[in-house]
């Protein structure tokens, strides 16, 4: 038996739990929204949301925060997915946030729009009056997330206070909120990266081509392999090289690193993930800025 096909019970268990959480979010809140990044976790989320309400349709819209620095593949994939499943898409543009003067673009060679998208996200949530945003974050991604709740309470400013979270017992989720507060809901909390890949394989989900090994023009910066893009400028002693790479997460082109890989199918990705020695987010330049980087961004409302 290969790792890819060793699926069965644990995936059923995780799927069932995730569906339960999605339904709880839908039932307990007035105006939910599902966050979409274009990555594998969020497309898994869309699949689960479809399952949760079948034979009905997904009863809430999908929200994508477009940094303007996305891979073109991501946008194509997103639009196809929405059309195929007749989903209602809302796009928040970081560009608009910058133009309105609500945020300033980071300067310098390491500039990233990761922090900026928090402002856009919160603006869009407020504009539409969403009271819960469902996301595909997992507890295994990063140390700061190990204590995250399924229903994560945010204050008026979208801030996460690690000390002020409600205890979650059994499968009882408390989503009672005051006007103006909102929640994040994380149905994939108990999944690992390998679980997600195995599930994608089991369910035969279409994934963006970026996740599979492909030839691409890359350059190396601080040990991270970054793609050539209109938003990155080479520094001294850096040079472009052609490589077979795949991405393990999909974010901004400015800061999403790739790994060298020959895995051109989901099955082979799974084999690689199962044996890999590099934690997933380590290919993202923004996490390496500080050891507690994720925690800082979480407090500010980043996913």
């Amino acid at each position: 038996m290969t790792i890819a096909s060793d699926t069965s019970k644990h995936l059923d268990w995780l799927e069932s739990e995730a569906i339960h959480v999605i339904r709880e979010a839908e039932a307990q809140f007035d105006n939910p929204v599902l966050m979409f990044s274009g990555g594998k976790d969020s497309l898994t989320m869309i699949h689960l949301a479809r399952k949760a309400f079948y034979p009905g349709t997904v009863p809430f819209p999908i929200l994508h925060v477009d940094t303007g620095h996305n891979f073109p593949e991501t946008i194509d994939f997103r639009d196809n997915l929405m059309e195929e499943h007749d989903l209602d898409l809302i796009v928040g543009h970081v560009e608009d946030t910058i133009e309105s003067g609500r945020a300033k673009e980071e300067q310098g060679p390491d500039a990233s729009r990761n922090k900026l998208q928090i402002v856009t996200l919160l603006d869009t949530i407020e504009e539409h009056g969403f009271d819960v945003a469902l996301g595909g974050a997992r507890r295994d991604e990063e140390k700061a997330r190990a204590k995250e709740r399924f229903f994560s309470h945010r204050d008026r400013f979208g801030n996460w206070d690690p000390k002020n979270q409600r205890p979650e017992l059994w499968n009882l989720y408390n989503g009672r909120s005051k006007k103006g507060e909102h929640f994040r809901a994380f149905p994939l909390s108990n999944w690992t990266e390998l679980d997600v890949w195995q599930y994608i394989y089991q369910e035969d989900l279409e994934i963006p081509s970026l996740y599979l090994a492909h030839e691409r023009t890359m350059f190396e910066r601080d040990g991270v392999l970054l793609p050539k893009s209109p938003y990155n400028e080479l520094r001294e002693e850096e040079e472009y090289v052609e490589k077979m790479v795949r991405f393990r997460t999909i974010g901004d082109m400015t800061c999403t690193g790739a790994v060298e890989s020959q895995a051109t199918t989901v099955e082979r990705v799974i084999e690689e993930v199962a044996t890999t020695q590099q934690a997933e987010r380590s290919a993202r330049a923004d996490d390496q800025r500080a050891e507690a980087a994720m925690e800082d961004r979480k407090r500010e409302g980043y996913f």
Binding site: R139, K147, A292
Partner: peptide
Amino acid sequence: GLRAEREQGITIDVAYRY
């Protein structure tokens, strides 16, 4: 886990690990 806890040298919440 969290930085505050690291400073106090104790774990004060439930952490889930896999």
